[in-house]
Design a protein around this nucleic acid. Sequence first.
DNA 1: CACCAGCATCGAACGTTGTTCTATCGTACG
DNA 2: CGTACGATAGAACAACGTTCGATGCTGGTG
Lengths: 236, 236
Amino acid sequence: MARLQNRPGQGRRRASHSMESVLTEAVALLDEAGPPALTFRALAERLGGGVASIYWYVANKDELLDLATDHVIGSVLADIEALPGSADPIDDLRAMSVTLFDAIVARPWLGAYFMRNINAQSNSIRLYERLGEQTLRLDLSARQRFHAVSAIIGVVVGSAVDLGQEPPQEVLDGAVDRDTYLGRAAAAWRDLDPAAYPFVHEIVDEFDGHDDADQFRSALELTLAGLRLQAGARVG
Amino acid sequence: MARLQNRPGQGRRRASHSMESVLTEAVALLDEAGPPALTFRALAERLGGGVASIYWYVANKDELLDLATDHVIGSVLADIEALPGSADPIDDLRAMSVTLFDAIVARPWLGAYFMRNINAQSNSIRLYERLGEQTLRLDLSARQRFHAVSAIIGVVVGSAVDLGQEPPQEVLDGAVDRDTYLGRAAAAWRDLDPAAYPFVHEIVDEFDGHDDADQFRSALELTLAGLRLQAGARVG
DNA sequence: CACCAGCATCGAACGTTGTTCTATCGTACG
DNA sequence: CGTACGATAGAACAACGTTCGATGCTGGTG
C-alpha cells in the first residue's frame, strides 16, 4: 500500500500543537456542546492533527479534563484576585463565592469537575487558599476555618451541580428552552395530590420560572449567616 | 449454521427477568465496583440473559441509572419516614439530612446521580416533600421555604460529591487506602511555601486524617443556624 | 555538508461500550 | 390446535479511549 502524502511541497502539513492550544480547544469543545463533545477525535480534528498526538501532552482523558478544568479555574482565580476587597471578611467571602458561581453558570460542565481538582491542581489550590485567607480574619479555630471553607465550596458546587445537570439533552439541543422545560416539570408537580404533597404545592409557583442565581444566593446567605454567628459567638 | 441450543430438556434455559431483579442487580454492580462496573453486558451476565433483553425494561442507560438511583432512594425514604420526629422542625431537618448523607456515604455513586432525579422520579420527589414539610412548621415565606430545602440538599450533595469523587482509582483498587491517600495530599500541601499559602498551612493538620462526616455536619450546622435565624427574625 | 538522536506527530488497529435489528421462544387465549 | 403478543436473545454497528509502530522534523556534532 503506497503512501500518498509526504510529497515535499504539496503534502498535508503536519500539525504543531502546544499544551496551551490543546487545553484551549478542549475548553472550547466543552463550552460549545458539553462533556460528550470532548472526544479525542473531535479535539484532534480541531487541532488539525492526529488523534494519538494528544497523548504526548496528556496521559489520558482524566488528565485532560483535570488540566482543562484547572485552565479555566486560572481565569476565575484572576477574577477573584482582582476583587476590591472590603473591611468585612464575610462580604469578601460572598463576593468570591458569587464570582466562582457565575463562572460555573457560564460553564455548566465546570461544576462536575471542579471539586476533584482542589487537592491536586495548582490554580484550584490557590483559589482554595484565597477563600481560606478570609477566614483567617475571623475569630475561629483552625478546624472551624477548614470546615467553613469546605461548607462554602459545598454550597457553590451543590448549587452548581443542581443547575448543571438539569438539561436532559433536549435543552442543549435547543429543541426546548430552559423555561418551558422547568414549566413542564412544574406542571407535573401540580398534578400531584395536594393532600399528599402539601409542600410541593406550596412552592411550585416559586419553582416555576425560578432564578438559579437567587437560589444560590439564598443558600449562600444561610451559610454565611451561620458563619457570622459562629465567629461572633467566639468573641462574646 | 445450525442452532445448538433449543433442545427440549437439555438446552440452555431462557432467562426470565423482572424490573425488580434488573434494578437490584444494577445496584449490586454499582455497589461492588462503582459506575464503571455497570455495563449492559455485565448486567446481562449477572441476570443470566442476553444484553438486548435489558432494553425491554429500560429505554437506555440514563433511564437505568435514574431508576436504579430512585430504587435505593426508596429505602432511604423509608428510613427517613421511620424517624421519630421531634418538637423542633430544624432538629428533624438535621436528622433527615444526616440519614440521607449516611446513605450516600454507604453508596458513593449515589451522590452523583441523586440530584437529577429530584424533579422526575417518584421516591425522590417524596423525599423532597418530606424535607419541605418540616419547613412548613417554620415561619417562612414560600420562597424562603423553597430556598431552604434547596440549600439543605445542596449542602448534602455538595459534601457527598466531595467525598464521592475522591478515590482516584488506586483507592478503589485497594492498592492505597484512603488515609494514606489523604496523607499524601497533605504532604504535598505542607511542601507549599508557607508565606504564599498561610491558610493551607493553618488547616493542613485538620485536613490530614479528617472525618468526612464531621465536615458535613459542620456545613449542615452553618446552614441550619442561618435558617433558624431567618425563621426567628420573622416572628420578632 | 552529512548524519544522527530524540522530540513530536500520525494512521491504523484493538478492545469495550451503548444501542439497534431481526429472529425466535413460550404461554395464554380463541 | 393455532395465533397473537409479551419477552428473550445473538449478532452487528458506530463511537469511544487507548496503544503500537512507523515516520517526519530539527538542532547540534563530526
